[in-house]
């Protein structure tokens, strides 16, 4: 008779698997009682508070109106930067003397400055 080669430990493993500990009803009942208690506890406590949503750049973008809003915001920002840098150049860069004083442009400013000292 031809014998196939077999792991010599396999009969021991077979025997051990056949002699496996089986849970008794008491253990199953204890485990189920825990499951019941946990579920009841959660129901009594109500729904768990939702964790705060991550405030990534996309959430912030969504809050201000999405990509179109970002485009408008970018254009406005660019215009502000340009005005901030470019406008002071106009009176000095052209070498013009306007001859105007602040009080000419805002007549109330003189009295205000006098009042304020």
């Amino acid at each position: 008779m031809v014998m196939t080669e077999r792991d010599p430990l396999e009969p021991f493993f077979d025997a051990a698997r056949a002699n496996r500990a089986a849970p008794e009803a008491d253990l199953m009942a204890r485990v189920l009682a825990d499951a019941e208690a946990e579920a009841e506890g959660r129901e009594r406590a109500g729904p768990a508070p939702r964790p705060p949503a991550p405030q990534g750049i996309l959430q912030m973008l969504k809050a201000v109106g999405g990509w179109p809003a970002l485009a408008g915001l970018a254009a406005t920002t660019a215009a502000g930067v340009w005005i901030g840098f470019a406008l002071p150049e106009v009176p000095t860069g052209l070498g013009l003397s306007t001859g105007y004083d602040l009080t000419d442009l805002a007549p109330g400013y003189g009295s205000l400055s006098e009042f304020g000292g």
């Binding site: 051990a16 500990a21 849970p23 199953m28 189920l32 499951a35 019941e36 579920a39 129901e43």
Partner: peptide
């Protein structure tokens, strides 16, 4: 909140880990 699912899991999983722990 499904209690029947807990029963099914208990029947399915308890014997497996008991086998390991007892050994």
């Amino acid at each position: 909140g499904d209690r029947a699912a807990a029963r099914a899991l208990t029947v399915r999983l308890t014997p497996r880990i008991l086998g390991y722990a007892a050994r």
